[in-house]
C-alpha cells in the first residue's frame, strides 16, 4: 500500500509586481499588479512504505512547494494528497504526529539549550510520556553517535553535529515518514558521508519512509533507489535509480592524453567536451557511434593514457533538467 499518494496536485502563487524606481513604487501602492506563478502543475506520484525516494529538481522547480503541501504547511489549489491516509489540508495536526521534517536551511532546535533538553522538548510537544522519551533518546543517541555532545548547547555544535541532532529531534516521536529537505547542505564531504550512513541505518532499523530533496547527487545516489525529477512544476521523470543510470549508460566519457595534438570537431555521436591540445575529453553516444570508432578517430598509437567511464549521475540529471527546459 502506498504511504504517500499524490493525485493531480497543483499550486499557484500570486506575486506582486513592481515597476522600477520611485514612480513604480508609488504606482504599486495605489494600483498593485500581480503575476500568477504556477509552482506545481498537476503532478501525480505514489511512495511505498519504507522507500527512500529522491525528489529532485533545479531551483524554482516546485519541489519545496510540493514538500510543504505534503507536510500540511501549504494548501494546494487543486488535487488530492494522502500521507498515511491523512489529508494534510484537513488534518494537519493528526499528520504532524506521524511525520518528521528536517529542513536543512531552517533550524528547529533551541540554540541555547543542549540537544538533550531539545529532545525532551520535542518529546513533550508530541505528547510522548517521559519514560518513553528517555528510552528513545538513549536509543537514538547510540544510533546517531551523539554521546560526545548531547550536553553541549546547540549553539556550540558544528554544523554536522547540529544536523545529526536535527534529524534525531525529528525522530523522537517515531514518525512513519521523514521529509528531509536538503539535509546535507553546507556540510563537508566526510560529514555528508557520515550523515548518509546514519540515515541509511535509520531507514533499515525503523523502516521509516524517507522523502528526500537535495541538490547533492551523492545524497541521491547513495541513499535512494528511486528518483522523481520535477521541473517547471511538472514531474519529468519517475524511475528507479538503476533505470535512470541504465538509460544514460549509452553515453560514455572518454578522457585521453595524447602524444601529439589532435584536431577533432563535433560529429554525429561524438561531442568534444574539452580540448586542451594534448588532453581531450569527449562524449560518445554509443547508440550512434561505437567507442572503437571514437578511438580510431584519436589514433590509438597517439594515445598516452586513456580513461573510459560512464556519464556521472550529476551530468545525467543536468541533461534531464536541460532537455526539459529546452522543450
Amino acid at each position: 500500500m502506498a504511504i504517500i499518494e499524490v493525485n493531480n496536485l497543483s499550486k499557484t502563487f500570486k506575486v506582486k509586481l513592481k515597476e522600477k524606481g520611485l514612480k513604480g513604487s508609488l504606482k504599486s501602492i495605489f494600483k498593485p499588479k500581480y503575476k500568477v506563478i504556477k509552482a506545481v502543475k498537476n503532478i501525480n506520484f505514489e511512495v511505498e512504505k519504507g522507500e527512500m525516494i529522491a525528489f529532485i529538481g533545479p531551483n524554482g522547480a516546485g519541489k519545496s512547494t510540493t514538500i510543504k503541501m505534503l507536510t500540511g504547511i501549504l494548501y494546494p489549489d487543486k488535487g488530492d494528497i494522502k500521507v498515511l491516509d491523512i489529508d494534510p489540508k484537513k488534518e494537519r495536526k493528526k499528520l504532524a504526529y506521524n511525520i518528521g521534517t528536517v529542513f536543512g536551511q531552517k533550524e528547529q532546535l533551541w540554540t541555547h539549550l543542549t540537544p538533550y533538553d531539545n529532545f525532551k522538548f520535542f518529546g513533550a510537544i508530541y505528547d510522548i510520556p517521559e519514560v518513553r522519551v528517555e528510552k528513545k533518546i538513549n536509543e537514538l543517541k547510540e544510533l546517531f553517535e551523539l554521546d560526545e555532545f548531547i550536553n553541549t548547547p546547540v549553539r556550540n555544535l558544528s554544523l554536522g553535529q547540529r544536523i545529526r541532532c536535527e534529524i534525531v529531534a525529528s525522530l523522537i516521536h517515531e514518525p512513519k515518514v521523514l521529509f528531509l529537505d536538503e539535509p546535507t547542505i553546507g556540510l563537508d564531504p566526510v560529514v555528508k558521508e557520515n550523515i548518509r550512513t546514519l540515515i541509511k541505518r535509520m531507514n533499515k532499523e525503523y523502516k521509516t519512509t524517507i522523502f528526500l530533496t537535495s541538490h547533492d547527487v551523492g545524497d541521491i545516489e547513495k541513499l535512494c533507489k528511486r528518483v522523481i525529477i520535477i521541473n517547471n512544476g511538472q514531474v519529468v521523470l519517475d524511475d528507479s535509480m538503476e533505470n535512470l543510470k541504465y538509460h544514460y549508460l549509452n553515453k560514455k566519457i572518454v578522457e585521453a592524453k595524447m602524444k601529439e595534438k589532435v584536431n577533432l570537431d563535433d560529429e554525429e555521436g561524438i561531442t568534444i567536451l574539452k580540448d586542451k591540445g594534448y588532453n581531450l575529453k569527449i562524449e560518445v553516444d554509443t547508440k550512434k557511434r561505437s567507442v572503437a570508432d571514437a578511438l580510431k578517430l584519436l589514433n590509438p598509437d597517439n594515445i598516452v593514457d586513456i580513461n573510459i567511464s560512464n556519464m556521472p549521475l550529476e551530468d545525467i540529471i543536468s541533461t534531464i533538467y536541460k532537455n526539459e527546459a529546452d522543450k
Partner: peptide, 11 residues
Amino acid sequence: GNIAYNLNKPY
C-alpha cells in the same frame, strides 16, 4: 515565511 514551519508541529 518562518511561521510556516510552525504549522507542521502539533501545537
